[in-house]
Design a binder for these strands. Sequence first.
DNA 1: ATGAAAGCGCTAACAA
DNA 2: TTGTTAGCGCTTTCAT
Lengths: 341, 341
Amino acid sequence: MAVTIKDIARICGVGVSTVSRAINNDPTINVKTRDRVLKVVKEYNYIPNNSARNLKMIESNTVALLVMGIENIFFTSMFGSFQEQLEKNGYDFLLHAVSENQDAVDVAVELTMEKRLKGIIFLGGQMDHCKEKLEKLNVPYVLCTVAREGEKFHADLPTVSIDDKVESQRAVEYLISKGHKRIAVITGNKNDFAVGGRRLSGYRHALEDANIPLDESLIIHQKDEIPGYSPANGYAVTKELLASHTEFTALYCTSDLVAFGAYKAIYKAGFKIPEDISVMGFDGISLGEYMEPGLSTMVQPKQDLITASVKKLVKRISGEDVTQDIYEAKLLERASVRPLR
Amino acid sequence: MAVTIKDIARICGVGVSTVSRAINNDPTINVKTRDRVLKVVKEYNYIPNNSARNLKMIESNTVALLVMGIENIFFTSMFGSFQEQLEKNGYDFLLHAVSENQDAVDVAVELTMEKRLKGIIFLGGQMDHCKEKLEKLNVPYVLCTVAREGEKFHADLPTVSIDDKVESQRAVEYLISKGHKRIAVITGNKNDFAVGGRRLSGYRHALEDANIPLDESLIIHQKDEIPGYSPANGYAVTKELLASHTEFTALYCTSDLVAFGAYKAIYKAGFKIPEDISVMGFDGISLGEYMEPGLSTMVQPKQDLITASVKKLVKRISGEDVTQDIYEAKLLERASVRPLR
DNA sequence: ATGAAAGCGCTAACAA
DNA sequence: TTGTTAGCGCTTTCAT
């Protein structure tokens, strides 16, 4: 098997604790001994076994980022900045993906023990029924951009996010301000009561406030058979919408990626954006800038979300009590929406 | 601290090994005892300590996917399929990101010991000088889409990838076949002798074979100050290229993402694609379909690469010796290239 | 400044 | 079928 601390100790003719001191840079070790040991360590390519180390150690200095939805471009684009900010605060960074069939909190508990985590940031995903479970997590944590079902906000939980309903409402109000009344919306699939539900709710409220009657035929749900919030899904449902000859002047997509798919369906049907149909996105992923025409969208304040999450976690680690942070999205006007008349 | 196996044993009035048998579904345990133990496990929310487990266990059934470049959309889009294929072959799946400042092989060694890995798939990144180091890894591994410097292919290493030079050459030959002679190319930054270098080399060879004189002013390197292979980089360099009034009829981008940026620069300068300038990409990421016009590109056979990687790893795990697999990219004609004259 | 030795929580012989 | 026990490789007292 691999070379262990004992081997190194034997080879150097010292005790294992001396080797341990050498590799952990213990200040009480003699510099010469340390260098001698380290030379052998290098020579024999010795790498300490982390399991043994973690088993014994009381605590590490590691903060883990637990990502639900590792293929989501919005989340992956945040990794680098998270790492940077965390390291700037003196923490080691660990990225861990939670797959669909896993329970995020269970994974968190396991990882906490395994790595003796100092803190956890949950990124993405849905966390509705975990409130009590979350309390079992005896490590400071923060929920960043974690969706919650329905209207309730768990204001007592340490979350960092935008208010999906409010921002969605703003998106639709923008469309209305441009003179649009027949506004189609592509939301999540039928069972999406979290992000999709809240964004749809914002749509309804905007229409209501503007006294525009709600037309259910303008509310489009993504297809269950196609990955959610993907261009493919946006393309498929927009194609059907267009084929149905439902009348509308603007299409509001609750996700930029969906809007990309909508673009294609619209072009393929022979229409022009924004001349024939205005399109509005949501999230503000950077690729929207490169579409033709540039996609108007509600930009999530990614940097704020990251900075606030880290700051909040650091506070919690040092014992302070924190609660919820809501950040505002920013309306980004590009060229995909035109004023009516 | 957390509840341990001893606690559970004490509470149940059984030995620790019985608890161990219960949680590991040992067939020799009495069903009634098992259920009783499991009930207590649930009740006390006991989660076994993985470090202890890994420390003790001879081997796991886990295969790790080590990703270099976790923010790269081309790689992230492969995760789901990798997981699926691996699990179909009976392995547990572990995704682990290697950050810029880490050595992939060191991380691999560490992880192998820590998780008692059955095998490793390296995805992405550059691995030039690691051949000897790699041999220190006493676990079967496969390199998938791992770039190598220069022309040498390490044919004796278990790699799965396309031949970047050959496929790049095909891309340019396609452009030439459409009548283009003044073909600008955007390659990696000046120090990129791996993917960027090989793809550039393909470009040179294609021109040479077609007796088209090489014009160095048509070879554009990405900027060091901007993240590589990003739309932002493509935009910046294309803008400069256009401003320089260098003449060309086609722009070959060695990455789709770069092409997206080029699109924007071209539109902003008032040109049309493909009427004024033809654009060719590379990689075949799915978003290319949604650009306007659809991006013609060389599609990496993602599914083949994944399937082959898994198959190769499985073989290696069962002791077979395998070497290199080269897959062919597929030319995907969409609408961004027009025939000249 | 260094070594000996006691576990960390678990699995896997081995005994019963 | 179950319990006892010896480590897995490391860190960390406690002596020396």
